[in-house]
Simulated scan of single mutants.
Amino acid sequence: MTGQPYAVTVPRGYRVGPWVVREPIGSGAFCTVYAGRPAGNGSRDLPREAALKFLPTGTRTPRRLRHLRELAEREVELLGRLRSPRLIRMYDALTVDDPDDPELDGATVLVLELAEGSLDAVPAPVPDPGAVLAQICEGLAQLHRAGWVHGDLKPANVLLMKDGSVRLADFNTAAELEGTHAYAPAFATPDYTPPELLWPEIDERGTRIRPSADVWAFGVLAHVVLTGAFPLPGATTGARADAVTRYARGTAELRLSPELPDVWREIVRDCLAPTHADRVGTEALLRRVEHVAGLARSPRPPRLRRPRLRHRHPFLAGALATALLAVTGLGIAAAVAHQQATSDTELASSYRPSLWGVLVSLR
């Protein structure tokens, strides 16, 4: 990271919660990741090392602050609810309390499993690319089964662990499905974006996105991993986006690299169908990739866990508390209206179970 600007600059030795910041690992447009170790002798409950992802959610312009908080909330919500073997693990989420440093005060810090590096840092050819691609596809299947779309799959968001396994990471643009669609922020990496989302319609909820967008991104990523080149020509990102648009409109053909192994050619082609409806489904894709990679079928992931209220990041706690107050208030208002037509005894027997149901559903 020498010479690169950091989204969040944190001095070495800085203390946040039980963690001490060490060297920087990587930086993007919205965050910077540092290595971290437990302070002092640490605790038996803490891992010996972790990745500390700093998001500047405390001090920025109001519009930018809302955007950054939304990105942080998305990632905390997803990682707090899902425990899948192909998704990076989140140990904790903290909020920096440091009024003397306005650039850091209020920042959100995600304490994540520490990886060896990302796929984009691995020189070509990638060792055992079939196994790597199968694990990436397994992670997508786990997300989609749970009702989420990643929205920004690319080599930089694929992490390689010490044991050689793969984890998907960076879920700040992930979105939960509502039927067939989800609503994601209007932000993605153009080289991995399907044609229907290169110039999307954006409303107050964001961009409508389907799981097929992740399938397209996987097709591009597989082509890059297996050949070292993008599947559509162009010397720049803009030129490649133009090529994708012409392909989607039927004025250009998809010409895959001759270096792409034959066993992968039809898989990549089916991922890169010009319309979302013609792309292969995630489950079928996973089975085909596992077959080509010579791997056994992956097990189904564990069930969703309910999100836990963490008081250490107040913007999330406040949102849940507001929701609880609003729903409880509706129950009280209904009980008051009902009281006009019922006796006190009837009110007690009808209202208490209703309020109890509200509290249980929000635990």
Score class of each variant (00 low, 15 high):
residue 2 T to M: 12
residue 16 V to K: 02
residue 39 A to G: 05
residue 44 R to I: 01
residue 44 R to K: 12
residue 48 R to N: 10
residue 49 E to Q: 09
residue 51 A to G: 10
residue 53 K to S: 09
residue 54 F to R: 02
residue 55 L to Y: 02
residue 68 L to M: 13
residue 76 V to F: 06
residue 77 E to K: 10
residue 77 E to P: 00
residue 80 G to M: 07
residue 87 L to I: 05
residue 96 V to F: 03
residue 97 D to P: 00
residue 102 P to F: 06
residue 102 P to N: 07
residue 105 D to F: 02
residue 114 L to T: 00
residue 114 L to I: 03
residue 122 V to I: 14
residue 135 Q to N: 09
residue 138 E to L: 13
residue 138 E to N: 11
residue 140 L to H: 03
residue 144 H to S: 10
residue 150 H to P: 02
residue 155 P to E: 09
residue 157 N to T: 03
residue 157 N to Q: 09
residue 158 V to G: 09
residue 160 L to T: 01
residue 161 M to Y: 04
residue 161 M to V: 04
residue 167 R to L: 10
residue 174 A to T: 01
residue 181 H to A: 08
residue 185 P to L: 12
residue 186 A to S: 15
residue 194 P to L: 01
residue 194 P to I: 00
residue 196 E to Q: 15
residue 216 W to E: 06
residue 226 L to T: 04
residue 229 A to P: 00
residue 239 A to T: 11
residue 239 A to I: 05
residue 240 R to L: 07
residue 245 T to S: 14
residue 246 R to A: 15
residue 247 Y to H: 12
residue 252 A to N: 06
residue 252 A to V: 04
residue 255 R to F: 00
residue 258 P to W: 03
residue 275 T to D: 15
residue 280 V to M: 07
residue 280 V to A: 10
residue 281 G to T: 09
residue 288 R to Q: 13
residue 303 R to E: 13
residue 308 R to I: 07
residue 312 R to N: 10
residue 317 A to S: 14
residue 327 V to E: 15
residue 332 I to P: 01
residue 336 V to E: 12
residue 339 Q to H: 13
residue 340 Q to I: 00
residue 341 A to P: 00
residue 345 T to M: 10
residue 352 R to A: 15
